[in-house]
Amino acid sequence: MSYRLGCGIVRVVINMRLKGIRRFHYARDLEEALSLLSAYGGRGAVLAGGLDLARSARADLEGLIDISGLGLSYVRAEGGGLRIGATTTLTDLLESRPAREYLGGFLGEVLRQVAAPPLRNQATFGGAVVSAHPWADIPTVLVALGAEVSFQDEAGRHKGLLEELWEKPFRHIFKGAVLTEVILPPWDGAFAFAKLTRSAYDIALLNCACGLGIQDGRISWARVALGATPRRGRRLPWLEDLLVGKEPGPGLWAEVKELVPEKVEVGTDRRASGDWRRAVAGPLLTRCLARAARKVTGGNL
């Protein structure tokens, strides 16, 4: 080993939190990535952007498997919905034409509020799904949108609703599986996103995504998810049921605002108290609902 390399390794110990990494692999295809994952038996991790891994402190990891060369960076429009390859960066998604056209540019509205541009250049959409931090904005949005994911393990290909996958021990699942695609369904209506935070760069103290369809002046369907509660984004079925069949407008929003503190499940973490979250959830949700309703009606509300 050269002196120069020796210096490098000393610096690695100083700079990196992942101190146990011994091998870095460039997977040539999905099968190779899965085979490597299996061989590491939980001590290997897949990366594309690598952002979360580089910030983590997983002392157990010995091998990194780079899947950025597997052709999983794409955004395709299909039947009014979107198919997003797992290694697509947030910036590439934000700038892609299909994403700009999906739901009137809703994804752009969300992603411009997620992290700083250099982090969006590195972070991948699949990484956001697999990491699924409780405070993150993207999981809340994907739950509201009814996103599905495709992933592959050694047993074969799987597809499922993200909302259901996140209720399972999904981190364990992805120790032996590779996420390949996120599928966003078409919706005849509009979605809006809102979060409470000091800036886009800060972690949300509370976030929400709302989708509404309106027919003959009444709400025909509703999708509402609240996240960073401090738990990961979840739908609010009681609120969705309440909204359907009602006439959107200030009267309905006032009714929602009154009910939210009593019905919403929030808690305390080091960022905010449960009492504070309970107090602000109503205004945040109604602001988001009103924005979605205005989008559907073209501002006539």
């Binding site: 120069r4 390399l5 490098g8 610096r11 690695v12 990196m16 990494i21 011994r22």
Partner: peptide, 15 residues
């Protein structure tokens, strides 16, 4: 360049 598998780009560039 020679790099360690877990080395950061920051470390490489400073080096």
């Amino acid at each position: 360049e020679e790099v360690a598998p877990g080395e950061s780009l920051l470390s490489l560039l400073r080096r």
